[in-house]
Write a protein that binds this DNA or RNA. Structure first.
Lengths: 157, 157
DNA sequence: CGGAAGATTGCAAACCGCTTGCATCTTCAA
DNA sequence: TTGAAGATGCAAGCGGTTTGCAATCTTCCG
């Protein structure tokens, strides 16, 4: 069922291609960029929406590798800054390159009928978030925010 | 392992005790308030934080009932206004009485080390949310927002 | 160069949250 | 009284995720 993973030929070959601007962090860490990892990052970079493991696996195409490998690598990449999201309501984790902080931080508007996702480009919560941290004595503060509704296509005529 | 459910004695007895202010909706609907449902609502009313199914099941104590019954009732109660949340990062759904809209709408600040949850009492997103709906043509819009950080107790000295 | 130690992967089994099919029981209405 | 509708317990099943293990590859050190 699963075709041979290219990993079999060159398992730990260090790949020196530049990563996306969002993944400089990854380079700074001591992470070996193996073929499956490179392929996973390529898929994530190609899509603007957060992807499930299954979607990533499907998108790998010829670079197909074992599901367990993807799951394990998502944990590894998460430690390096990848964002894991559970907020889409179906119980499956979704991943995206954009870090919670800094440039590229954004939120989504999700249609609850057809699952269409609209990217929102500005986040206005930084100041409020900082106030919150001071008020409650929290550090390393971050947030998640998603909007839900019914998109124009899905509204009954 | 599971002790006999009290349901066995009085399965569909209508219980007429007043529900919490948040659950007037439930009364208006045509929902039979059975013993397991009453017990579940009691547990939710006793806790200020959103609870997982497992936590609810544990809290039921002597009113213990089958897990499948809780799962089924959560769907039923959800249709009546109960709020299901997936935004706590472990993939398990959590439930709370407060509805998404109207009075009682609020968000949380979660400690990522000890899971302590701080309730935040004001939500300032309604106006922004309405703008968003107009701009993208969405209807029935709602949102989820959670903050994460490390609480004072968990910060290294 | 050779070989040990560590990292990564594929495979299969297990785990966990959740759902569903079925028999049983209660309620409610005819 | 009788039958339909709804709720529950039980057990099996499903999908997403994790884990144990052996094999393979890289790195490092003698």
């Amino acid at each position: 069922m699963s075709r041979p993973c290219p990993q079999h030929q060159h398992p730990h070959r260090l790949i020196q291609q530049p990563l996306s601007d969002l993944t400089d962090k990854l380079r700074r860490g001591e992470l070996k960029i193996t073929a499956p990892r490179q392929a996973i990052l390529d898929v994530l970079r190609k899509h603007s929406s957060p992807l499930t493991i299954k979607e990533i696996h499907t998108s790998l195409g010829k670079l197909d590798c074992d599901l367990a490998t993807i799951y394990r690598n998502m944990h590894t990449l998460e430690r390096m800054g990848l964002v894991r999201r559970y907020d889409f309501g179906d119980g499956a984790a979704r991943f995206e390159l954009s870090p919670e902080e800094g440039d590229g931080h954004h939120h989504h508007l999700v249609c609850t009928r057809c699952a269409r996702i609209v990217e929102l480009d500005d986040c206005f919560l930084n100041e409020f978030q900082d106030q919150l941290a001071r008020r409650h004595g929290f550090t390393q503060i971050s947030h998640r925010m998603e909007f839900f509704g019914i998109c124009p296509n899905c509204q009954a005529p």
